[in-house]
Amino acid sequence: MIILYSFLAVAVLGGLFGIGLAVAAKALAVEKDDRILAVEAALPGANCGGCGYAGCAAYAEAIVKEDADITLCAPGGAAVARAIAEIMGISVEVSDQKMVAMVHCRGNRDTCTYKFDYNGIRDCNALYALYGGDKTCSFGCLGLGSCMKVCPVDAIDYDSRGNVVVDRDVCISCGKCVDVCPTGVMKMVPYSADYIVACHSIDKGALVRKYCTVGCIGCKMCEKKSPEGGFTVEDFLARIDYDARGSRDEAAAACPPKCILRVSSLKPDLVPVTALQEENEEA
C-alpha cells in the first residue's frame, strides 16, 4: 500500500506542477527574434566561450541585439562568419586562416633551473602569484596544466618529457588557454605554421644560458641562416612572421639551443600517466 501511495503522491504532485509550469510558460513566454535562433543554429554549439560570451546562445543574442562582431567565433572560423553574415544581411571580410594555440617553451626539470620547490595547489596562476613561478625563468611554461583544465576539447596534455603541448589537430582556436596562462607563453599561431620558436624569454642571452638549455639567446643565427624565413630577433627573442613564405629549415638546424621546433613534432603523449603526473602524485 505504501508503495502505491508513494508512487501516486509523487506522480500526482509532479503532474500538477508540470501542468502548472506548462501553463505559466505559455502565459509568460518571451518572444525570441527568429534571427537569434538562426544564428545560434549556425554556430558550432561547443559553448567554448572563446568569443567572450557565456556560450553560443549568448553570443547569438549579442549578435542580433547588440550588433556584436560576427567574426568572434574562432572554432567556426570563416565558414560560420559567412553564414552569420548571410542571416544578418551584412557583408564580412574574413580570412580562412585557422589559428591554433602553441606553448612557446620547452623548459622542464631536465632543461632548466628552478628557484624553489613548489608544493601548493596545482594551478599555474596560484604558482605565478608566488614570485612569478618556481622556474628561474619568469617567462616560461609553469607546467601545472591550468590550460588543460580550461580547454573545452582536451587538446592540451603533457608529452613524454613532461612539457605541455597542444595538439593542433584537436585545437578549436577558442583562445581560453591563452587567457588563463599567467606567463603568456601560450600564443596563437596559424595552423599552417611549420616551425615555432619554443621560447618566451626576453632576458639577455647570457642570462638565459644560465638557467635554460633550450631557451632563445637572441643570437640572430636564424635571421642569417634563413633570411627569407621571416625571423626577427627583438628583445633577445626570435619571432617568426608567418606571412613570410621562405624556408625555415636552415635556421632550425643551425639554432644553437635548438629552440626552433617543427610543429608536427609537437604532439601530446598518448600515454595518460606521464612522468610529471607521477611526480605530482608523489608530492
Binding site: 503522491a9 509523487v10 504532485l13 509532479g14 506542477f17 508540470g18 502548472g20 509550469l21
Partner: peptide
C-alpha cells in the same frame, strides 16, 4: 517531494 516543489 520538497525538492519537487522547490524545483517547480
Amino acid at each position: 517531494t520538497f525538492i519537487l516543489v522547490i524545483a517547480s
